[in-house]
Design a binder for these strands. Structure first.
Length: 483
DNA sequence: TGAAATGTTGGGGCG
DNA sequence: ACGCCCCAACATTTC
């Protein structure tokens, strides 16, 4: 009897799972495992992501048990766990889908070598990208730094939509194996001890099945309005698939195929445009992965080296806290930060607005914002998070130039004209008329009284003067440029 | 996937 | 009918 181990990492699904398919074809006994490692990595899993991971693992375990198999969960150093398990089960093959973060790459290549020394072969696969970084280089051998040519090139090269549907019955896992050093998911302590996760529970249902529901819902109700609707945070205008994609509960190929199927019955120009616009976002994800792969220091260091000398503020603890808590006094920013804290997610338009305020108006290092997002987002993804923050801070690839400073009032008026989003997350401004909802500090005293808003008491005064801080940032940028 | 300042145009009011 | 001014609407430039 030949035995293989399938090591699940950021591919917590059965559908379209290349490592799983290969293992099932290659060996008679297939042991699916997950390893929770001690938190000594550069980016240990954040609190919100842990919550997600707990439920995601439970869902995967359940669906494997449903098929007569199981998910064996271990806690400890991945290399040691794998070596031990290979010895005790006499497994000769280990299968996994590749990770692309710098320290995951290092870990995996070390493990691969160690396993080889005990005569265990590792087979790794692309389980999550449309095109892997080494297949996306320019003709001159350097990586793309601008999105549009990148996107054109990988489409032109042809994208293979890997497809695999898991069988109903998997090889059974013996009780002896189930009890060997495994740990129960609940014993991993991934859930918070005090119940701040109410909002997450109310908002999300992790798991492969749920991701599929999201796609269908998106295609039925949302995608046609996507090109404009994706910018309106007050409506449900996006797919909200980001956490599922991060944990690999859904493959980008399945999303792509679903849109292809939808396109056969939606052939008008509006539908074509909407489908393209959405798939383009999937392209951004690959672009981010490729950037982090070729510029592995960018999780902490600006890609544009001019910014190494940028005079960020150095004492910002109090201000950072106000931003984190959604108490900046700028309604659309506070709405976003509170949406994040409550639901573990923030609308992308609003991510740009809050990031612009932090890095440009407040001059707080973007790394601080990235760190907060890492801890609080259920879709926290090193490649996407890094690219997003460097993009708004103006120091990344294909980034918004530094002088592009969002005015959160203008943004609010354009993208939340009826104040729906702000009122939902900043209820203390509920009764303020649309005209003042994005700038309560400009409202006449009488209007404030009528809305029962007392600035500095029921809702904060704005913590920065937007016009003034904008000028300050521009001046710093000019200095930096000329030096 | 900016915002503000500055420039241009053209319709309408008015002497 | 004409020139002048005002200003909204749009375009361009600058940061």
């Amino acid at each position: 009897m030949t035995t293989a181990i399938v090591w699940f990492r950021q591919d917590l699904r059965l559908q379209d799972n290349p490592a799983l398919e290969a293992a099932l074809q290659s060996d008679q006994l297939v042991i699916p495992i997950y390893i929770v490692e001690p938190e000594k990595r550069d980016w240990p899993v954040g609190a919100a992501s842990k919550w997600w991971l707990h439920h995601s693992l439970s869902a995967l375990q359940q669906s494997l048990r449903h098929r007569g198999s199981d998910l064996l969960v271990f806690a400890g150093n991945a290399e040691r766990v794998l070596m031990q398990l290979c010895r005790s089960t006499a497994a000769r093959h280990v299968f996994w889908n590749r990770c692309y973060e710098p320290d995951a790459i290092e870990r995996d290549s070390n493990i691969k070598n160690s396993l080889l020394e005990i005569a265990v072969n590792v087979y790794s696969f692309n389980g999550s990208l449309l095109a892997e970084p080494w297949n996306t280089l320019k003709k001159d051998g350097t990586p793309y730094r601008v999105f549009t040519p990148f996107w054109k090139a990988i489409q032109q090269n042809g994208i293979t939509l890997f497809c695999f549907t898991p069988p109903k019955h998997f090889p059974a896992i013996s009780d002896k194996l189930k009890n060997s050093n495994t740990i129960k998911i609940t014993e991993l302590n991934l859930l918070p001890s005090n119940r701040w996760d109410m909002g997450l529970t109310e908002t999300w249902q992790p798991g492969e099945m749920s991701a599929r529901k999201y796609i269908h819902n998106f295609l039925d109700a949302t995608i046609m309005q996507y090109p404009d609707g994706r910018d309106i945070p007050g409506i449900s205008g996006t797919s909200r698939l980001s956490p599922y994609l991060h944990f690999g509960e859904i493959s980008p190929w399945e999303i792509w195929r679903s849109i292809q199927v939808w396109s056969t019955t939606h052939t008008d120009s509006g539908a074509i445009k909407a489908a393209e616009c959405y798939l383009r976002q999937l392209g951004w994800r690959d672009f981010a992965y490729q950037l982090l792969y070729y510029f592995p220091h960018t999780d902490t260091q600006p890609l544009d080296t001019r910014f190494t000398a940028f005079p960020w503020k150095s004492r910002y603890k109090k201000e950072l806290q106000r931003w984190q808590q959604g108490m900046t006094g700028i309604p659309i920013v506070d709405a976003g930060m509170r949406e994040l804290w409550y639901s573990g997610w923030m609308h992308n338009r609003v991510r740009m607005i809050v990031a612009s305020l932090l890095s440009k108006n407040l001059l707080i290092p973007w790394q601080q914002g990235a760190q907060w997002f890492w801890d609080t987002l259920v879709d926290a993804d090193l490649a996407n998070n890094t690219m997003g923050w460097q993009w708004t801070a103006g120091c990344g690839a294909d980034a918004a130039p530094f002088f592009r400073i969002f005015n959160p009032v203008r943004q609010g008026e354009r993208f939340d004209p009826d104040g729906r989003y702000v009122r939902r997350w900043v209820p203390e401004l509920q009764a303020l008329p649309d005209k003042w909802i994005h700038q309560p500090w400009e409202a006449p005293q009488q209007v404030l009284e009528q809305a029962e808003v007392v600035l500095g008491k029921t809702y904060p005064e704005p913590m920065v003067d937007l016009a003034q801080s904008r000028q300050r940032a521009l001046a710093i940028w000019n200095d930096l440029k000329s030096s």
